[in-house]
Design a binder for these strands. Structure first.
Lengths: 240, 240
DNA sequence: ATTGGCGTTGCAATCTTAGCGACATTATGG
DNA sequence: CCATAATGTCGCTAAGATTGCAACGCCAAT
């Protein structure tokens, strides 16, 4: 995330990739006007970007003219997965964490949401945990909070300005206080299910990287320290 | 792969994604001029596209100003992996194939090369086989031949015009004959190591999709039929 | 020193893109 | 069954983003 743009940043590429990502995280086929509303773009522009992605095979039109992932998405997945060596680096480490009998997760931050590379409750085989979950609001996820805390206050304020924030009925000030607490601790601990007393503990993989590891389940306070230590250790081994 | 472009295809997006893919499959950091030669683009253009990708975090500049995958590549991997449900669909099926004691692979075609989503020799754990191998020439790979055979002769001729073809010293006519043989059979069988008598057998996952499954190792003729049947069965189950 | 490569950028001409408006099509609701 | 509103799509022209030459500074090898 280079903060300053270059001489002539290519806006078409920026918006095109934003469109591609919005398409990828959409749980079901979407039309261009809906996607345009999500992205704040002109519908005509989104339509043309989607049609270009369709021409490349990355998008595909369904029977009712909406857009979904196309076969080219496989190619992109293969290439980006290999280029970001994250799976090869992380999977052996994640496998070891499973002995805790908790849900293990590896996720990345995208805008105000978390995409999961891996998410497996106890009992599920490791291979089944891959690419299973698409998007969750960052503010209600341990991984999301751990990653948000790495960004500056201004960036967070911009992301969540003037709207309801998932998990924080009090709005932005509440979120900011929680973020500050995460920064102090060096890890995130959030309650994901008050009735069953389930928590998530998460630590970022490396400074200013997009990824974080987390464990989720019944984690009483006295178990917190060893779990944080195991996660920190895992995060360093995944490294980068 | 929509054969006809739309009203106003966005060339910046097309070239930008080509640049992104070329960056992703590059085994080591590359500079803009080298990438430009690979892609047949203007170096200035590639430089600006790379800088835009760097601004997005997808690319990153090394100390000597070359470009590599950046942290944003993790995000792209997570999103495209989830959107293309291929891993979730394929991994359980691939896991079953491993009982044959051969190398199991799942790959996609990109231009004249194969990117592997999964590639595991016997003995390797399933999770270790994920995203391990980047690129191999399509013409020397069973999966590559199976996928190439799905394209038209003109497309293949265009890909391999006026250059040496890996695995086919005789050039294009030899390749075309081999492709035609694959089409007749409905699967690819190629010799990948003459001295150890190792072969690869591969079948496409679904018509005109980019993916194919393959098995590799010592496969004598009399074992061919059951392996082809197992692969065909697997391909249908992976489906799409 | 010199040469040739590299990444990078300024600049002006150019050609792509933006977005209105229009069209056909498809729900949705009287 | 007709309104009404929403959708996907495209032609058109002004507006402006992009192109690529040329040039710069840098580095490595000669």
């Amino acid at each position: 995330m280079n903060p300053k743009p270059n001489a002539q940043p290519n806006q078409s590429l920026i918006d095109g990739i934003a469109t591609l990502q919005a398409l990828a995280v959409s749980p079901e086929p979407v039309g261009n006007r809906e996607l345009a509303r999500q992205l704040g773009f002109n519908p005509t522009r989104v339509n043309r970007l989607l049609k270009t992605l369709a021409y490349l095979g990355i998008a595909r039109q369904t029977a009712n003219r909406k857009y979904t992932a196309g076969p080219g998405m496989h190619v992109l997945a293969a290439q980006s997965l290999h280029a970001s060596r994250i799976m090869q680096d992380a999977l052996p480490v994640l496998e070891e964490l499973r002995r805790f009998g908790l849900t293990i997760a590896l996720g990345v931050l995208w805008r105000d949401s978390v995409s999961y590379l891996f998410h497996a409750p106890p009992g599920m085989t490791t291979t089944q945990g891959i690419g299973r979950i698409g998007l969750l609001p960052a503010t209600s996820s341990g991984i999301g909070m751990a990653l948000l805390a790495q960004h500056g206050d201004d960036h967070i304020a911009e992301l969540f300005a003037d709207r309801a924030i998932d998990g924080f009925p009090g709005g932005l000030p509440d979120l900011m206080a929680a973020i500050e607490a995460v920064r102090q601790l060096g890890y995130a601990r959030v309650c994901v299910d008050p009735v069953e007393d389930r928590h998530t503990v998460a630590v970022p993989v490396s400074n200013l990287s997009f990824a974080a590891v987390g464990m989720s389940g019944w984690i009483p306070e006295q178990n917190n320290a060893p779990i944080v230590e195991a996660l920190t250790n895992a995060a360093h081994r995944i490294g980068d």
